[in-house]
């Protein structure tokens, strides 16, 4: 099933796969740092874990992030 509305990564359940739709830009350079780790629009994502921290796989990189970061990553779930 393909939903057409991008959802923040923080709201996705473990096991969800999808593609990054966009990343909220702010003044802290969060989007830049994520981009440097390969989290850019179009990148494929799999949610691995949501508690105590959010862990996801982006391309071949496993990343752990805090909830605030996961809220700014919008994913088109597949």
């Amino acid at each position: 099933m393909m939903t057409s509305i991008p959802t923040p990564l923080a709201q996705l359940k473990p096991g969800t796969r999808g593609r990054v739709a966009r990343i909220t830009r702010d003044l802290t350079g969060r989007a830049e740092r994520l981009a440097a780790l390969g989290v850019t629009p179009g990148a494929s994502i799999t949610v691995l874990q949501t508690f105590p921290g959010i862990v996801f796989e982006c391309d071949q990189t496993e990343l752990a992030v805090e909830r605030a970061v996961a809220r700014s990553i919008f994913v088109l779930a597949e």
Binding site: T28, G53, L63, V65, V69
Partner: peptide, 12 residues
């Protein structure tokens, strides 16, 4: 000052 975001790559 501030703290930075928690974004960490997990090695295999």
């Amino acid at each position: 000052g501030d703290r930075s975001d928690f974004i960490l790559e997990l090695p295999p």
